[in-house]
């Protein structure tokens, strides 16, 4: 599944430039950086409410497909800047983790 399909289906708001054709290998939902460092996989979409600059470092290190900020969180100025520098895609949604996981789970299984 591509980023573009997910963004469209879920009505995600993009906060950075992104490559719509990039593939998403799966989804990882966590608000614990250590957890993401240890257990996320390449090209995972990361669902979190953490919005501080360290998230970008984690996303870069783990080659994640992008970050979805839940609960209408707005990234810190510094986070956004770093994301642009590193080419990490950030999206936001008003949904909570539970709902967006639910919808994404459905979406990924249909394919």
């Amino acid at each position: 599944m591509t980023i573009e399909e997910i963004v469209k289906q879920l009505g995600l708001k993009s906060l950075t430039k992104y490559d719509g054709n990039a593939t998403v290998s799966g989804v990882f939902a966590s608000d614990l950086l250590s957890d993401v460092m240890a257990n996320s996989e390449e090209e995972n979409f990361w669902i979190t409410l953490q919005k501080h600059p360290n998230t970008i470092a984690v996303a870069t290190l783990k080659d994640l497909a992008g970050i979805i900020l839940v609960n209408n969180r707005k990234p810190d100025e510094e986070t956004l800047e770093k994301a642009k520098e590193e080419g990490v895609a950030i999206f936001s949604t008003t949904m909570f983790t539970f709902e967006i996981c639910g919808k994404l789970y459905d979406l990924l299984r249909e394919l």
Partner: peptide, 11 residues
């Protein structure tokens, strides 16, 4: 994992 647990219950 969190994603699948939420997904299954939501479904």
């Amino acid at each position: 994992p969190m994603f699948e647990a939420c997904g299954r219950l939501y479904k």
